[in-house]
Design a protein around this nucleic acid. Structure first.
Lengths: 253, 253
DNA sequence: CGGAGCGTTGACTCAACTCAACTCGGGTGG
DNA sequence: CCACCCGAGTTGAGTTGAGTCAACGCTCCG
């Protein structure tokens, strides 16, 4: 379901040459540690846009690192609505749960076509026991993501629609910019529908639409056909509640 | 400011006898590891209700384990409003940040008078490098808290006031119940003002008040003078969106 | 050519906010 | 001991931000 091919074969690159490595768990591992990791990994996988590659309520024996494309983690509520927890960019570490046996509290879905690198939970836990470096790295990622989620929570809980949307766009802009070498133009690709934005921000897609119109009419941003253009960075930062403009970058994944 | 006394002295109990231990980082450490930890800890501290024992924007060289009382972590927004990230009960691990030097993204405040156990960030990191067990434990806590925060986010983003309040009360009830041996009566102590509840849920205190009135009039819960009484657990679970009633307990801290 | 999915817009509704007054209880100082 | 004050909780009236419902346009794709 959505899965394109089985574990890809010999053609698969080694971890050392991994394009996403700078953003993954694997960064800051020694070459030795990296080869251990390479020993236990289950290989790469591709999923189509829209594929649920991690299901809520099911236990999960694997952990995934996003290598290419956009994904998201989300919670499904009993009332049928969906809360998007976060948007994942290459390097994101998805699905880790200390207690591998208990059912996951969230699901994950591919937004664009994606490629992931799969690791067995168990093998990873074993490795953590032997190489503290790995355990530390995982802990760091866990707390970093926690911070990002706290910001997201504050955004949803305490800002009006315009502020929420501005804040999210700003955050995504920054995150995308960080991993593309050339920071030349102010346009980035944002493969999000208005419904996705709404589900991340606790708004309806209709209201996201109106809000975006407002921002467009005020010449602050334009989001059209998957392209986000920041027309007035200062105004946007203000609407978004970024006090220090773009200095906060460090704290993003 | 709010601090009652300096590091308490010899009277301080050993980690082995720590009353909060079952809920702390320290659980699941061997006696040896525990004595290492005991070697680096900075001692206990007491803070008055209302004291900000961890400030947003300042780097933090210490990590705290809550031993007694209630606390909260919160974000202050530029617009002056406050978003409560979570409520902390004894055992909570507060203030850990992989990169100890960068400023904290949130603050923490005592809700009641509290007692905490302080550890140096640096010492802890060193210990993690030597005892993988500790690193693993920290990672687990980080991901567990992440899950709790995701639930909180979903609650705030995708439920109406009545559902949010019900959900929060249910969660707190369960958490408090878990750490009190006798689960006899249905009443617990909840030292939260309506304003705190509002700031956690993205509501105004006025609206929390009306919502609580509604729940009281419907004979679902009563929250009066710091005492929470669940009058109709089933209805509450339904309002709160707890599908399995009280089976989800495991996943709480 | 016809759908399906996404975006856009308008008209109407309603949940939650704002503002403001008033109560109640506990603490404090004269 | 009493008057006062302050913080928390209540309640009402009016406002508004966001949701709902519904129609319609556009584009891509089969």
């Amino acid at each position: 379901m959505g899965r394109l091919q089985t574990n890809s074969s010999a053609a698969e690159t080694h971890c050392v040459g991994c394009g996403a490595r700078d953003w993954t768990v694997c960064s800051s591992l020694t070459d030795d540690e990296l080869s251990v990791l390479e020993g236990i990994r289950l290989g790469h996988r591709d999923y189509r846009a829209g594929a649920d590659f991690l299901r809520q309520g099911e236990p999960q024996r694997e952990v995934l690192t996003l290598l290419e494309g956009w994904a998201m983690r989300y919670c499904l509520l009993e009332n049928g609505s969906r809360q998007i927890i976060d948007f994942c960019l290459p390097g994101a570490f998805i699905g880790f749960q200390p207690d591998g046996e208990s059912p996951k509290g969230y699901a994950a879905q591919a937004i664009t076509d994606i490629k992931v690198c799969a690791l067995p939970q168990k093998g990873l836990m074993d490795m953590m026991r032997q190489t503290p470096n790995m355990a530390i790295r995982l802990a760091c990622i866990g707390y970093r993501d926690q911070m990002a989620m706290a910001r997201h929570l504050a955004n949803v809980g305490r800002r009006r629609a315009r502020g929420r949307v501005s804040n999210l766009l700003m955050e995504l802009f920054v995150r995308v910019r960080m991993r593309s070498e050339a920071a030349a133009s102010e346009a980035i690709l944002l493969p999000l529908t208005q419904e996705l934005i709404g589900d991340a921000l606790g708004l309806t897609s209709v209201h996201v639409n109106r809000t975006l119109r407002g921002l467009r009419e005020d010449k602050i941003v334009s989001l059209k056909g998957g392209t986000l253009r920041i027309l007035d960075p200062d105004r946007l930062a203000e609407e978004a509640g970024f006090e220090d403009g773009v200095d906060v970058l460090e704290s993003f994944s």
